[in-house]
């Protein structure tokens, strides 16, 4: 496979995952705005932060953080490289680049997603249409994932697709935690107390895991459990541990397929060993903030190493 193709696959799946995560973030913000009488604009601020687009937003719109402006910025502003519209353009461009590596089903799912969203986002989305639109984004990205799962060969093509997916997902969960870590700190609450309803909803909704959390930990949303769930739970498909395991596995498949063990695999193994093999109390002792910063930095380094090892660029 061409190095460029591997890179195109990796990025196409990163962007598809990113589009899905952005839609979740917007949905979370919208939900909080509707269910809370005051302080909702603060939530939009932290949502911009979790999307890593707070600075770009500030540069264009100043300090005025309002629902309407934020939603438009995150959905369809071309100046925002992280808007759904920009992300979908980049996902499709990468899909075009690697079209020979995709099954027709996957290509058509990406192309149809792009066509539909481009059309729906061609003008401002009003509040009434927002839920349906966010639903469309989720359905369309799920269709790409389903087509990938059901039609693609489990070879190096698939491995690069999965690497892109899980780097992006781990990065997203990590950034979400980074923005919200303070509400999870034991010092913020009496030990054992439940979290403010809105706060835990924000977090769990943003990863589509309210049900999952209840199943595993019951109805009490204790900060320690939420942190445990999002960081270490091996059953939760968006936890850092789950994503890091997948990264390690897929790099392992590549290593055995190609017969070469690259530094990226060692890095993923190290990431898993160093950050995922403690219990949650040890992480709190170490410092949740520092820990998450450490994971995000390691993920960034891993992404760069993958690009080098598999010759994405010249």
């Amino acid at each position: 496979m061409l190095g460029k193709t591997a890179g195109g696959l990796y990025w196409m799946y990163r962007y598809m995952e990113r589009a899905e995560n952005m839609s979740r973030l917007i949905e979370t913000g919208q939900r909080i705005a509707l269910t809370r009488s005051h302080g909702a604009d603060d939530e939009w601020g932290s949502i911009l932060k979790a999307a890593s687009t707070d600075r770009g937003y500030g540069a264009k719109n100043g300090g005025d953080v309002r629902r309407e402006t934020v939603v438009d910025w995150m959905l369809r502003d071309r100046d925002n490289p992280g808007s759904i519209l920009s992300i979908m353009d980049m996902a499709r461009n990468n899909a075009r680049l690697v079209r020979t590596a995709l099954t027709p089903e996957v290509w058509e799912a990406v192309n149809a997603a792009w066509m539909t969203l481009r059309q729906k986002l061609s003008r401002k989305v009003n509040e009434r249409e927002l839920p349906e639109l966010l639903g469309t984004i989720r359905q369309r990205t799920a269709l790409v994932r389903g087509a990938t799962h059901g039609t693609m060969m489990r070879n190096d093509i698939y491995d690069f697709a999965r690497l892109g997916t899980f780097i992006e997902r781990a990065d997203y969960t990590g950034r979400l935690l980074d923005v919200k870590y303070y509400v999870l700190l034991p010092t913020a609450h009496a030990v054992g107390s439940s979290l403010d309803n809105v706060q835990w909803e924000t977090i769990l909704r943003s990863v589509s895991a309210r049900g999952g959390f209840r199943m595993a930990y019951g109805h009490e949303a204790r900060p320690r459990d939420i942190a445990q769930f999002l960081i270490l739970d091996p059953r939760m498909p968006r936890s850092l541990n789950f994503c890091v395991s997948k990264l390690r596995d897929n790099l392992g498949y590549l290593a055995s397929d190609y017969g070469v063990k690259h530094p990226s695999l060692s890095q993923a193994e190290e990431l898993k060993r160093r950050f995922m093999s403690h219990d949650i109390d040890a992480i709190f002792d170490y410092g949740l903030h520092e820990y998450i910063q450490g994971v995000l930095a390691a993920l960034g380094g891993l992404s760069q190493q993958i690009e080098i090892d598999y010759r994405f660029n010249q």
Binding site: M1, L2, G3, K4, A6, D156, Y258, V260, Y310, R311, Q314
Partner: peptide, 17 residues
């Protein structure tokens, strides 16, 4: 940009060299 002349042949950059 995927191609380069190496050892007198035109070669493409793959994930394995």
């Amino acid at each position: 940009h995927d191609l380069k002349v190496v050892d007198g042949r035109v070669q493409m950059r793959t994930t394995q060299g």
